[in-house]
Design a protein around this nucleic acid. Sequence first.
DNA 1: TCAATCCGTATC
DNA 2: ATACGGATTGAC
Length: 664
Amino acid sequence: MAKIESRPAAARPIARVSVDVPLPHLDRPFDYLVPEKLHEQARPGTRVRVRFAGQLVDGYLLERADESAHGGRLAYLERVVSAEPVLRPEIARLGRAVADRYAGTLADVLRLAVPPRHARAEAKPPAPDDHGISSVPRDGENSAIMGEAGAGWSAYPAGVAFLRAVGAGRAARAVWSALAGDDWAVRFAEAAAAAHAAGRGAVLVVADARDLDRLDAALAHSLGPGQHIALSAALGPEERYRRFLAASRGQVRIVAGTRAAAFAPVDDLGLVAIWDDGDDLHAEPRAPYPHARDVLLTRAQMDGVAALVGGYARSAEAQQLIETSWAKEIVAARDTVRGAAPAVAPVGEDVERDRDPAAVSARLPSIAWRAARDALAAGAPVLVQVPRRGYLPSVACAQCHAPARCPACAGPLALPTATGAPACRWCGKVAAAYACPTCGGRRMRAAVVGARRTAEELGRAFPGAPVRTSGRDGVLASVPAQPAVVVATPGAEPVADKGYGAVLLLDTWALLTRADLRASEEALRRWLAAAALARPGARGGRVVVVADAGIPVVQALLRWDPAWLAARELGERRELGFPPAVRMASLTGPPDAVADLLAAAQLPETAELLGPVPAGDDQERMLIRVPRAAGRALAAALHAASGVRSARKARDPVRVQVDPLELL
DNA sequence: TCAATCCGTATC
DNA sequence: ATACGGATTGAC
C-alpha cells in the first residue's frame, strides 16, 4: 500500500531509479520520492521496488538527489528490497556505456552484470577466512606443470615494464602473445599480484571453467588464501551471489571469472585482463550481446586502469588495439619464440596418405604416426586434437577425401539426409547425383569423425599405449608425463606434465572450410592452444598439422607467428570492410519488421546497407556498416528506432547485434 | 444522453 | 507491458 501520509526524507529526497522493464524507450532513469522511513536504507546501488505505470517493478537506485527535473507528481519508493549496495556508481556507468555501445538497454546489461539476489547469502556473513575460494593448489600440479619457458615475464622485454607499471598503479595497456609452453595462468596471477601489492584490485576474465580452475589455482598459489574469488555461472545461485558480495563488500579485490565477471565490483581497481580473447565464449549470448573484451577495455578506458589482453594466438581486435596505439605489444624476441616452440611439420591433405601400412587409419598420415610413435617411445604423452563432432557435419569423397562442395555455389555439403542426397549448407540446394570433381567418386563419408571413434582408431594404431579422451563429456585437466594417446576436442586439451612429445592436428579441413570470416583466426587459435602444450623442438616436441603448407594460417603455425596472421587478417577486414576495421550492426527478424526498424532509424550518413540475406524461419538479416567513428551514432540510432517501435507496440521483434561474431 | 470500446500516449 | 484519458460509436 502506498503510504499517503509518507513524508519525503529531509535530505536528498529524490531517488533516481533505473526500472527493470524491457522497453527501449523507457531506458532512462525515473525519479521517485524517498519516504522518510526509507532514508537510511535507500542508498545508491540498492535494489528497490517502485510503482511504474501502475505496476510494481524492480529497479536499481542509481543516486540520491536534491531535486527532480520531472514536472509532474513523483511517486514514493515502494520499498528497498535490500540495503546491500550491489550496483556501485562505476558499474552503473560501465553498464550504461556498454548498453550504448551495443544498442541495448541498461536494464538488459544490469541483468548480466549483477547476479540475482540470494537472501541467505546476504544475511550470512562469510567466515573470516572463507570468501568462496574454490580450490587451493593441488600438490605441485598446477604451478610447476609447464614452466618450460621458465623465465616468467622476463622472457618478454615489454612484459617486465608492464608489470612494473601495474605495480606503480599506472594505466598501462598491452596485448600479450604468450610463448609456447608458458603457463599463462601463472603469468596472469603474477600480474594480479603486482596490482595487489600496490593495494589495487584486478578483474581477470577467462573463457571457460577449465581455464578458470587453472587461474584460480595459480591465484591461490601467488596470493595466498582468502585474497581472491572465482566467479562463474556454473556455481549455484547462492554461492555465486556470496562470492559476488565478497568482492562488492571489499573483502577481496582480485576477481577471476568467466564473461559476466567483467562487470564485477572491485575496490580500487588497478588491472583488467582477458585470456584468449578470440574464444567465442567471451561473447555473451543474451541481449545486448556484449563481448567480455569490450566490456573490460571500456572499463579500463573509463576508470583509467591497466589492461592486459593475452593469448597464444592474437585476434584481429587485439591487433587493432596495437595498430591504433591503444595498447603496446608484449612479445618475446624471435629466437626466444623459436626456442620455445615445438617443431611443426605440415602434411598436405593428399600426400602420403594410405601409403604407410603401419598407419592403420587413413586419417593418420605416416609422418604423424611416426611422430606419435617416437614420442610414446620416449615416454611422453601424445595429444591428438580433433574437431567436435557435429561441429561441421560436412562430407568428403570417400575415395580421395576431397571435400564435397556444392556444384552451384561451392559451399560445403551437409551429410546426406534420410532422402540420401547431400544438401548445401550455404544455398540449401540438394546435390542429387553428386560426383566428386577430383576423382569422379560417388560415395561420400563424414569428413569429421568424433573424438570417440578417433580414439578407437588410434588405439589400434598404437597398441600398448593407453588412449584417453577429453571433450564435452569429461574434460581432463592434466595428464602425467607417461606414454598415452590423449584425444581431445578444441578447448578441452589437458595440460601435460613436462609437455607433450607430439601434438597431432587432424581433420583440419573442417576448420578451414568454415563459412566464416574468422575461420583462419579461429583455426590458428585452436592449433596454437594445442601446440603450446608440446615440448620445445629442442627437447623433441613435434607438431604435425594435416593441412597444406601453402595456406597462410598453416604458415603462421609453422613460423609460430600469430602477430603476422593477425596483421594480415586485420588488413583483409579493412579491405573487405568488416569488423573490427569498421563497425557493423546486424538486424534479424521478419522482413517487414526489419524494414520497419530501418525506416524508423536515423542512420548516420556514412551508413551502408548490406543485404538482406535469408536467415531461416521466414527471417532475414540486414547488415549496416559504418566507419568506426560513427559506431556510437549507429548504436544510438538503432536504440532510438527500437524505442520508437516498442512505443508503438510493433509486434515482431528485431534482434539488433553490434559487431556480431558471426558474419556471412 | 450515457456507457462500452477503441486508440494513443505516458509511464517518475 | 499496462493504465489512463479522450474520442468514438452504438443503443436507449
